[in-house]
């Protein structure tokens, strides 16, 4: 039985309503689960998840104004996105499937 990997399966529908788990924590647990399914991205994304956690904790312990109530999307700095959305990048060609082809431009 040694080769059997025991893995906790998280169902998002249950996680959402488990009040004993912090909302941020619930999401990161679920996302980690998702990542294990798509193994190749696992490591990178897990790191990301942790970073997200730290980021949020810092926010909480700091000035309470940081947790300011707003449903505005947090804009990422241009430098972070410049490469991702440059001409001919993978993300752009993927995104093009979301557009109608237009004659202009």
């Amino acid at each position: 039985l040694k080769h059997v990997v025991v893995k906790k399966v998280w169902d998002i529908n249950k996680l959402i309503y488990m009040n004993n788990i912090d909302p941020e924590d619930a999401v990161s647990r679920w996302k980690r689960e998702e990542e294990e399914d798509t193994e190749d991205e696992e490591e990178e994304a897990e790191e990301e998840g942790d970073e997200g956690d730290n980021f949020f904790q810092k926010k909480n312990s700091g000035d309470s104004d940081e947790g300011i109530e707003s449903n505005k999307v947090t804009l990422k700095p241009s430098e972070e996105l410049k490469e991702k959305w440059s001409e001919g990048s993978e993300a752009i060609s993927e995104l093009k499937t979301r557009f109608f082809k237009s004659a202009k431009q």
């Binding site: 959305w85 990048s89 237009s102």
Partner: peptide, 9 residues
């Protein structure tokens, strides 16, 4: 910035 998307802007 939006030019690569090839969409009417």
């Amino acid at each position: 910035v939006l030019r690569p998307a090839g969409c009417e802007v």
